[in-house]
Design a protein around this nucleic acid. Sequence first.
RNA 1: GCCGCGUUCGUCUAGGGGUUAGGACGCCGCCCUUUCACGGCGGUAACACGGGUUCAAAUCCCGUACGCGGUACCA
Length: 488
Amino acid sequence: MRVRFAPSPTGYLHIGGLRTALYNFLLARKHGGTFVLRVEDTDRTRFVEDAEADILSSLTWAGIQFDEGPGLNGGYGPYRQSERSTRYAEVANHLIEHEKAYIAFDSSEEIDALKERLRTPENPSPRYDHETRLSMSNSLTMSSEDVARKVAAGEEYVVRLLVTPGSQIKFTDVIRGEVEFDSATVDDQVLVKSDGLPTYHLANIVDDHDMAITHVIRGEEWLPSTPKHVLLYQAMGWDVPQMAHLPLILSPTGGKLSKRNADKQGIPVSVSQYREAGYEAHALVNFLAMLGWNPGDDREVFSMEELIEAFSLERVGQSGVQFDLQKLEWFNEHWLRSRSDSDIADELETSIQDTFSDVSREHLVEAVALMKDRLSFASDLLEAEYLFRRPSSYDEKSVAKRWKDDSPVVLAAFADSLESVDEWTLDKLEEALQTFVEIHEMGMGKIMFPIRLALSGQPSGPGLYEMMALFGKDETIARFRACNDALA
RNA sequence: GCCGCGUUCGUCUAGGGGUUAGGACGCCGCCCUUUCACGGCGGUAACACGGGUUCAAAUCCCGUACGCGGUACCA
């Protein structure tokens, strides 16, 4: 089995592209096949300089490694279509010679004019096809001498697929079953553009064949052009690979998940945006895997290894799926919690030191331990400033509501009593507070809030004893006094 | 318009002739915790519609509606 992911470097890797890559990768790994990365850079007008680098680094970040691709030749290279031009020309010529394709000289203005002329409310987008080609300038309507002369004169031309009406083009989609198109509804697709470069349709089938691809797994947007591809395979006498068209990922409201659309809804579309926003790679992969596929049982949390084990094309769904950021966030929290404290500390080390100087390693690891269950993203820890420095302010609403007249006295008294705690441990601290409330015959509720406020400035957070243990005796007592001073 | 693909809780989905239509996210409640979370338990909520086939249809067939995709010298 050989599969491929074939992105076009016209933009950064899209979330849908990552899922397509993932499914290809999973299938290859599951069956001991080969996963090829091919860069389809035939559109010079939309080429984006750093897109390929982004695609490569995004895949690496997600844990998807290719076996063959740019910089990793497996005997089928090169893996950039811009480096394979002669092969496409060869195939195009073969098609022309065998009357499966033809040369057309029509300028884009002439084609626009044709469409303008034929456009009606019932037919808003006329095609260049078996009917209209008869009235255009191409090697079917011109003498071969005229064609040869124009070509020799260096006139621009394109190569078009010659589609003959009257047949049914059938193929089996692994996900959708039998799919059938009437050849009369297929247009004469341009195969070679006037700049001499192939279109996707030509380059794609040539490469899939030459690279011995056995399974073409791609987005559903390609389903309508598949009959053209089938025709090309047949014209060349090549076997058609197994086809699998994945359901599209839709926006949360059901429309297309375009950049524009998604931005409006606050949904990142490129993988690098997720990476920058601090999403766990595992979470994104896990979420994407479940978007259109399921294992057939109730499991939802999967590591990459488990996905490889469980994945199959047969369990991929057929209908479009809406993107749900909340579910992604749930996966993110889950995977974040599965990481070790020290691993998360490693990730945050630099930004923590930049924001709060002189945070010891032990302190950071302990802070992570205290907060891990309360974070959505690892970087959210930076927002819990009180874990790393004394509060500079106290949450106003909470103060207004729960800071009572006797709070300063209670807090000061407790601070005094803490002076005599010799062993600064969770147990001793709990004991100290218990004893304190008993001696003063007060309810625990009376003192817990002032302590929390003094320690963190916030109405919620980690346990009191945990925080006191983390801050140490001197700092804890200092925070009590500072709070009293500030709220006096 | 035409061509194609779809349609089970708000969302992701299981189920493919006989099910109290199951799970997850979200939301709500309870428990745990004198905080907030995590966790546990429970609740809310769905077979697009109309015809057929059948003893029996969410499940098979047809139609309609709706959604999505395509209709480029973009991929």
